[in-house]
Amino acid sequence: MPDALPAATFHILLALSDDDRHGYAIIQDVAARTGGELKLSAGTLYRSIQRMLEQGLIVEVRDRPAPEFDDERRRYYRITPLGNAVARAETRRLAQLVKLAYAKGFAPESA
């Protein structure tokens, strides 16, 4: 089984899967999707982004106006094909893990 992807990385990839986003939008998207469970801090976000840029999971798309920052121009990030592949691989890994857990009888009670 391949190594787990850091949670922050996976969530960022998920946030970028449908649209290019800037940093604050990623934080909000992650928070919304996890019901406020996971609030990425600015530092964690940009450390992850830096690493993901180096690994080629995402690329930067510069200079698009951000509506909520008025006229300030922000950096936008876009998922790469490699990023897509990694996200898929992580999904597969998680799915297998869950299947394994079910097989052992660990079904969540509410399900």
């Binding site: 940093g23 600015a42 530092g43 940009y46 830096q50 300030e72 922000r74």
Partner: peptide, 10 residues
């Protein structure tokens, strides 16, 4: 690299 962005988020 990211200072300005982080300030904006803050």
């Amino acid at each position: 690299e990211y200072g300005a962005e982080m300030c904006a988020i803050f």
